[in-house]
């Protein structure tokens, strides 16, 4: 099939699977601005970036994932792989592509939405009265002006006032977890600025930051939202956040737990949901 710029593969990565609503909203936003979206993610589409200790396995993962995207390009005309995760995006650009022939381009979701602001902005019809601190990282701006792109999207929402948070190290919060105390310091610096600047909302850009900040939702009158939640609110769409609610003491319903495997849930998921918040 001939490739077109409007047919894309939305590559949401592995860890985004904690946040199903954010995946669905991302797909919806891309569709609303005119893209034909096929979504792909999870371990079968792993980039391999978290497997530096297993270079051969990581190399095989990269080859498999590139091959699948090449297939989507040739069979379905999907000319662009659109990322959510900055790790996946950088790994594709810097390491996967130089080691594997690719027949697609790459873009971050925020770039596509910013590029079609003329289509997105008219859809933001619901006023969202929020003073929002944007949680920003220094990293990934080497590849995509993600902080500027998200600020632009949020600023187009009627009623939203955006304040830039401190530009903290790393490309997202999970990158700091190897360094003792770093995640907590970054979270505290960001949180303190949100409170001190009178914000009622702290907006995350990436999933790992959202995961780390979620348990703090509601403290001192500050709500944690991802940027896609805010865009959804402005479009009058439901914007629930199950992961955030579970981290604050909620739990999935019994049927969902049984469907996922009650033993696996107890062993793998529940300990994460009951972990203490990074911000004390």
């Amino acid at each position: 099939m001939a490739m077109t710029d409007d047919r894309i593969t939305f590559w949401f990565g592995c860890n985004m699977l904690r946040h199903a609503e954010m995946i669905r909203l991302s797909i919806l936003l891309l569709e609303k601005v005119g893209y034909d979206v096929s979504a792909a993610g999870g371990p079968a589409y792993c980039c391999g970036t978290a497997h530096d200790h297993q270079p051969h396995a990581a190399s095989n993962m990269a080859e498999r994932t590139v091959s699948r995207f090449n297939d989507a390009a040739s069979a379905e005309g999907r000319s662009t792989v659109v990322t959510w995760c900055p790790s996946c995006h950088m790994h594709m650009s810097d390491i996967m592509a130089p080691g594997n022939p690719t027949s697609f381009d790459i873009a971050h979701i925020t770039e596509l939405l910013a590029a079609r602001a003329d289509r997105l902005t008219p859809l933001l019809t619901h006023k969202v009265e929020r003073r929002v601190l944007l949680h920003r990282h220094l990293g990934f701006t080497t590849h995509v002006s993600v902080n500027d792109a998200v600020r632009g999207v949020l600023a187009a929402i009627p009623g939203v006032e955006v304040i830039d948070g401190p530009a903290v190290p790393g490309h997202m919060c999970s990158a700091l977890e190897a360094t003792p105390g770093a995640t907590a310091k970054v979270a505290k610096d960001t949180w303190d600025m949100a409170v001190d600047s009178g914000c009622d909302t702290l907006a995350t850009i990436f999933h790992s930051c959202h995961r780390i900040l979620s348990p703090t939702d509601g403290r001192e009158g500050v709500t944690i939202r991802n940027w896609v939640h805010l865009v959804a609110e402005a479009m009058g769409l439901p914007a629930s956040d199950a992961y955030r609610d579970w981290r604050k003491g909620g739990a999935p319903d019994i049927a969902a737990i049984e469907r996922s495997g009650a033993k696996l849930y107890a062993q793998l998921v529940e300990p994460e949901l009951r972990k203490a918040a990074v911000l004390k």
Partner: peptide
């Protein structure tokens, strides 16, 4: 949107070994 670099090795492992 960015065009990805061309492959210069037969795998990511080989690329990193040379790089």
């Amino acid at each position: 949107m960015s065009t990805l670099p061309s492959a210069v090795a037969t795998s990511t492992e080989a690329y990193l070994e040379a790089a």
